[in-house]
């Protein structure tokens, strides 16, 4: 059983942070909130999403009886339910519903999610979780450098870089964090000193990333005030930020483009 009420803007912000990477995925519902981890179809980026139950105005969850008895017979019983959701569709519905509070109710038996926004009720058929990709493993990564930057500063640079080329360099040179894009004609560089940032680990390294992915991510983080960038040399990029006024955490992992030969 899952029943919840949530502010439509909060829900939209959360779903947008997921659709930046995947269109559909397996959402895990437990007593303490929602979780998702999914990789994009090209295996280049991953999103991890966690939302606490108290981000909701009302959040009630209990494992269905028949499921409970089955799992208890087995090993450790895990009080959670997994549902397959087409997030793009859900986002479209929230767009129609406007700013109302959203009520959610799961019918696990019929594999449907009821949504109600004011006088509008919409029933979404769930996706068969077995038809969706398996949840990826948690990567084991160590990042030598961490940068905390205002989201708007980052997004502005990405928007400018989109006009120039299809990739972007993120790096740290001493106490400066920089973003560089170079195309056939133009070149762009943003350099921010330690005091212009919220946090910076000094170092000397950089990595190259596909701008298509970073652009999509930059849309998914638009409601966060700050983002944390974890960087290495020719290494994945881990971007972390909060959603739902700090009651949710999102992270994006992006594999680098590597120059060889």
């Amino acid at each position: 059983m899952f029943k919840a009420k949530v502010n439509a803007n909060v829900l939209r912000e959360c779903i947008e942070s997921i659709t930046a990477i995947v269109d559909e995925g397996k959402l895990r519902i437990a007593e303490d909130g929602l979780k998702l981890r999914a990789v994009d179809p090209a295996n280049v980026a991953m999103v991890s999403f966690e939302l606490q139950g108290d981000a909701f105005d009302e959040f009630r969850f209990a494992v269905a009886e028949e499921v409970k008895s089955e799992t208890e017979a087995g090993t450790e019983s895990k009080a959670e339910t997994e549902i397959g959701i087409d997030f793009v569709k859900l986002l479209g519905i929230l767009g129609i519903g406007g700013r109302e509070e959203v009520e959610l109710e799961l019918d696990e038996h019929a594999q449907k999610l009821f949504t109600r926004m004011g006088s509008l009720a919409y029933t979404i058929s769930l996706l068969d979780p077995s038809s969706l990709r398996k949840e990826p493993k948690v990567p084991e990564l160590e990042f030598p450098v961490q940068v905390i930057i205002e989201t708007e500063e980052f997004r502005r640079t990405i928007r400018a870089a989109e006009k120039i080329g299809d990739h972007i360099v993120l790096g740290v040179d001493g106490e400066v964090f920089y973003m560089e894009a170079e195309g056939e004609m133009d070149k762009l560089r943003l350099g921010l000193r330690k005091e212009q940032l919220i946090h910076l680990t000094p170092g000397t390294l950089h990595s190259l990333y596909s701008l298509d992915y970073i652009s999509a991510m930059s849309k998914g983080m638009s409601h966060a005030e700050n983002i944390t960038l974890n960087l290495g040399k020719d290494y994945p990029l881990l971007i972390e930020f909060e959603v739902a006024e700090g009651k949710g955490k999102v992270s994006y992992l992006l594999a680098p483009r590597i120059e060889s030969e």
């Binding site: 980026a45 990826p136 948690v138 990567p139 084991e140 594999a255 483009r257 120059e259 060889s260 030969e261």
Partner: peptide, 12 residues
């Protein structure tokens, strides 16, 4: 120079 997009499996 052969810039190639890596996939994240490499780090999982």
């Amino acid at each position: 120079i052969n810039v190639s997009q890596r996939r994240i499996e490499q780090w999982l």
